[in-house]
């Protein structure tokens, strides 16, 4: 293992994040606060408890997931797309590193950043609602797995993208809708039966459900299924990344 290289990539990516620290944290904190004002306060006051939890608290796990998934995806995709775009990818390709080390550096950094943002949102949420986390260890585990797998997913997009439009397309057209429709702001049981069935094809449902269970002990799908889903997604992304490096897809003529 070339740990020096992993460290160099990781430090470089984190430096990029801290250079714009205000932006990095401000926008998620601001948008979360807005969600609380709009959903939690304005709408929530008209909604009774959902599954025994106040509506304001109920949306916290979904809100965190929404930010973490989009942040991990965009951070990792930009992280690897940028060197391709400006040509500095030559250094990665000519260095004595393997695919695992490159991925560890970029994905590790993107996962760390999104994890930090998730924590900040959680802290912000406690300013608006009373929260107790029932299963803290499970909560952290779900959060970590989500950060990691979506950072991997973003890495793949960054390699695949040929231009900035493509880079933004997937988070905008795929991740955000899947999260919104994945029960971030409602319980699946609130949907009519037909739509419930459709929803079960949305992988994000399993992640949000598991994450919410860690908070409140209630879930739309069994927790084991949630774990299985996230682990499956993680493995799938790993396999794709591995194939990318074996074939030099879109990085090596």
């Amino acid at each position: 293992m070339n740990w020096q290289a992993v460290g160099a990539i990781y430090r470089y990516e984190m430096a990029r994040f801290f250079r714009t620290i205000a932006q990095s944290f401000l926008s998620p904190v601001l948008s979360t606060s807005l969600y609380f004002v709009v959903f939690g306060t304005a709408i929530g006051s008209r909604i009774n408890e959902v599954e025994g939890v106040s509506y304001g608290a109920f949306i916290v796990p979904g809100l965190i997931m929404l930010s973490v998934m989009t942040q991990a995806t965009t951070n990792a995709s930009f992280g690897i797309y940028f060197p391709k775009f400006i040509g500095t990818v030559y250094e990665l390709l000519s260095a004595p590193v393997n695919f695992f080390e490159i991925v560890l550096g970029y994905v590790g950094a993107a996962a760390t950043k999104s994890l930090l943002i998730g924590m900040v949102i959680l802290a912000t949420a406690t300013l608006f609602v009373d929260l107790t986390v029932l299963h803290p260890a499970a909560m952290v585990a779900f959060l970590l797995l989500t950060c990691l797998s979506f950072a991997l997913f973003g890495f793949i997009i960054g390699i695949w993208a040929r231009n900035f439009e493509q880079l933004q397309l997937i988070p905008l057209l795929v991740v955000t809708p899947l999260v919104f429709l994945g029960g971030a702001f409602y319980s699946i049981s609130m949907l009519p039966p037909g739509w419930q069935t459709v929803t079960y094809f949305n992988p994000v449902v399993y992640l949000i459900s598991g994450f919410r269970w860690a908070f409140f002990g209630t879930s739309d799908v069994p927790v084991a299924l949630s774990l299985l889903a996230i682990a499956g997604f993680l493995l799938l992304c790993l396999a794709v990344v591995w194939a990318i490096f074996r074939t030099g897809y879109r990085i090596k003529p």
């Binding site: 020096q4 290289a5 430096a15 250094e91 260095a95 590193v97």
Partner: peptide
């Protein structure tokens, strides 16, 4: 930082 980064990439 640029020079340090490359040295790190090369495992040193």
């Amino acid at each position: 930082d640029a020079v340090r980064f490359t040295r790190g990439l090369f495992g040193q």
